[in-house]
Structure formats: structure tokens, C-alpha cells
Design a binder for these strands. Structure first.
Lengths: 146, 146
DNA sequence: GCGTAAACGTTATGCGCATAACGAACGCTG
DNA sequence: CAGCGTTCGTTATGCGCATAACGTTTACGC
């Protein structure tokens, strides 16, 4: 592969990551959230209560990160962490009413963010885009191939 | 816009960010680098010496981040930070010979990373992909519109 | 049924990012 | 030339991520 192409591609992905995250942070700040926390709330809103190991898998980040993030979201009153009587190792994470309300707020912001992101892209591209991004994600996901 | 589409899109971008960065970190670890540092070395290799403000602009991250990263890369012997006699506020950052060698190592790794990333994507898509990612980046870049 | 391996979660530490507040050097205007 | 806003960089602090090492609980093999 052409090294210049590779450089351009990797750099473009890096920049998109930084900017998309930064813009998300701007939108989430008024809700008192930091970038990354919204993913927890949205996942719980989609799937219902989960134990932290499942959250870790769904979010694509490691268990220690989940521990800290859930602690903070619990302190903010957005989620609830309860021990699982059936498995004393696990802790079940669930949205509070507060958290559910926040999740729908986030959904609105995310429509705004997505519209901003794909502005001026051809409609044909919009249809393929999520699949393409997903393919790239799984391509670089070390867990399956390693 | 469809909320489900927005959700899928934003989530796909977030996951790609995490995984692409994680994979980059795996590849850079043998060189003793952390993800993000490679961007500094590559930028200096492309453009020659820069002052930190220019680096900050090119990397898309804030001046305090640049201060810390350059300090660490200097401690590792990969770059040199010298005061600018013409402007006593500025500090000029340049690659050492060590850093130049490392930059070409990174280039090879980035070809690998890019090839992994776009595996199984149609050739027609490969041609458009960098432009699309760049468009999305500038779309969510707050500096121009805000 | 017991010992060992696996899974769940936590603590500790470190890096890349951010924002806020600050001092020092520059440049421009009165 | 004096004053003031701007630019450059730094320090302090905090969050989201990571890995490494650990204790606890569960599950599995013998």
C-alpha cells in the first residue's frame, strides 16, 4: 500500500476521533456529562440493566474504566449499582429515573451531532457509512484475531 | 434525522476511535511509544521543525497537551526543544536523528495499520474514504463555525 | 467434594486529552 | 515611548482510557 495513503487515512481517523469527541463533549457539557459517559447511559437505555462485564464488552473499554465511570455516574445519581444475589461477584448497573430522562436528552443531542457530522455527504454514502465504519472497527479489533 | 441512524453512526465513530487507537498502541508499544506521540513525530517529519503553537494546530490538540507530550518525547531523546532567539516566547521543536529513524519505523507500521483497517472494503470506497473522513472532521470542527 | 482454573470486580499507576489561570514576550496604537 | 491587548508557553487539575496486580466468588475436572 502507498505510504502516503496510509498516512492520510490514519491521520484522518485520528482527527475525526478527536474532533467528534470534542464536539460531543461540548454538547454534553450542559447536561453535566463528560464524553464517554453518554455511552454508558445509552447502552443501559437500549439493553436494560447489565452487569459491568457486559457493559465493558458493549462499550469496548476495559473493566477498570467501567468501574470508575459507573462510580461517578452513580455519584451523580444517574445510575444505580446493586449487588447481584445470584452471583456475588457481579454488580448490576441500572438507570435511575434521572438517568432515563438524561438518556433521552442525549438522544436528541446525538441527532444534532450526527447531522452535523455527515453534512454535505451524498445520500448514497449515508446509507453505507455505518456499515463501513463498523467493518473498519471489527477489522482493527484485536480480540477476535489475536 | 432518524434517531436510530444517529445513534448507530455516533456509536460506530466512537468504537472505531477506540479500536483504531488501541491497535495503534499495540503496534507502537515495541518502539516504546504511546498512542498520540507518533502524530508528533510524523508531523515533524513531514513539515520540519515547528514551534509548539503550530504543532498544536497541526495535531488538533491543545497547547498544554503539546507541552507535556513534547517534554516526554524530549526525555526519550526523540525530539529537541530549543528556544527561538527571534521570538523568546516560542520554543522550536525538531526531530533528533533518533526521532527521524523512529519516524520511518512508524511509517511502516502505519501501512500495516491502514491495510488492516480497510481490509475487505471495495476499491471504489478506498479512493473516497480519506476525503469522507476529512469532510466529517471539518464538519464537527468547532473552531471554524463557532 | 475438593482443588484448581476462570470470571468479576477493584486498586494503583500512567498516558493522552481537556479547561482554567497565570507569567512572559511581542506588537500595535496613542 | 508608554500602555495594553495578544500570543506563546506553562502549571494545576480532572476525566476517559489503558495495563498490572490483587482478592473474592463461581464453575469445572478429577
Amino acid at each position: 500500500m502507498d505510504p502516503e495513503y496510509a498516512d492520510a487515512l490514519n491521520q484522518a481517523i485520528r482527527l475525526l476521533s478527536l474532533r467528534h469527541r470534542a464536539r460531543a463533549a461540548q454538547l454534553l457539557a450542559p447536561l453535566g456529562l463528560h464524553a464517554g459517559q453518554e455511552a454508558v447511559l445509552l447502552e443501559l437505555d437500549r439493553n436494560g440493566p447489565l452487569i459491568q462485564a457486559q457493559l465493558s464488552e458493549a462499550l469496548g473499554c476495559e473493566p477498570p474504566s467501567v468501574t470508575l465511570m459507573t462510580r461517578k455516574l452513580e455519584a451523580s445519581g444517574h445510575i444505580r449499582r446493586t449487588p447481584n444475589p445470584a452471583d456475588k461477584r457481579a454488580t448490576v448497573v441500572a438507570l435511575t429515573d434521572n438517568g432515563k430522562a438524561l438518556a433521552s436528552q442525549i438522544r436528541k443531542l446525538w441527532v444534532t451531532l450526527a447531522e452535523e457530522t455527515v453534512r454535505d455527504l451524498p445520500t448514497a454514502m449515508l446509507k453505507q457509512l455505518p456499515d463501513i465504519l463498523h467493518t473498519m472497527s471489527t477489522n482493527v479489533d484485536g480480540k477476535s484475531s489475536a
